[in-house]
Lab assay of single mutants.
Amino acid sequence: EEEEKKKEEIARLLGVSKEDVERILKKNNLDIEQLLRRVQREN
């Protein structure tokens, strides 16, 4: 699934687990696209 791939990509870029990414998304109330763009910009 596309969303899972995005979570895995974010996890890889941040050096965290996919579960961490899911927690970040919930905690910050971000959607996956916003987080992915933010992470890609910083790297």
Rank of each mutant, 00 (worst) to 15 (best):
E1P: 12
E1G: 11
E2Y: 09
E2A: 11
E2V: 09
E2F: 07
E2K: 08
E3W: 08
E3H: 11
E3V: 14
E4D: 12
E4F: 05
E4N: 09
E4K: 07
K5Y: 09
K5H: 10
K5N: 10
K6V: 11
K6F: 08
K6C: 10
K6P: 02
K7P: 01
K7L: 11
K7S: 02
E8N: 10
E8P: 00
E9M: 15
E9P: 00
E9I: 15
E9Y: 15
E9D: 06
I10K: 00
I10G: 01
I10C: 15
I10Q: 00
A11I: 02
A11P: 00
A11E: 01
A11G: 06
A11C: 08
A11F: 01
R12W: 07
L13T: 03
L13C: 05
L14H: 00
L14Q: 00
L14I: 04
L14C: 07
L14T: 01
G15A: 04
G15P: 00
G15I: 01
V16H: 01
V16F: 04
V16I: 15
V16Q: 03
V16W: 06
S17G: 06
S17F: 04
S17I: 03
S17W: 02
S17Y: 03
S17N: 07
S17H: 07
S17L: 06
K18C: 08
K18Y: 06
K18E: 03
E19L: 11
E19A: 13
E19F: 09
D20I: 14
D20Y: 14
V21N: 00
V21E: 00
V21T: 01
V21A: 01
V21D: 00
E22C: 10
E22Q: 06
E22D: 12
E22T: 08
E22N: 11
R23P: 02
R23L: 13
R23K: 12
R23I: 11
R23Y: 12
R23A: 13
R23D: 11
R23G: 07
R23C: 06
R23Q: 13
R23M: 13
I24T: 03
I24V: 05
I24Q: 03
I24K: 02
I24D: 01
I24N: 01
I24W: 10
L25W: 01
L25N: 00
L25M: 12
K26M: 13
K26A: 13
K26N: 07
K27G: 07
K27M: 14
K27V: 14
K27C: 13
K27L: 15
K27T: 13
N28Y: 15
N28V: 09
N29G: 13
L30H: 03
L30T: 05
L30I: 12
L30R: 03
L30Y: 09
D31G: 10
D31T: 15
D31C: 08
I32T: 10
I32Q: 01
I32V: 15
I32K: 01
I32N: 01
I32D: 01
E33A: 05
E33W: 09
Q34M: 08
L35P: 00
L35H: 01
L36W: 12
L36A: 04
L36R: 04
R37T: 08
R37K: 13
R37E: 15
R38A: 14
R38W: 15
V39T: 05
V39M: 08
V39W: 03
V39P: 02
V39G: 02
V39F: 04
Q40S: 08
Q40W: 04
Q40F: 03
Q40P: 02
Q40C: 12
R41Q: 14
R41G: 13
E42S: 09
E42H: 13
N43V: 15
N43R: 12
N43I: 15
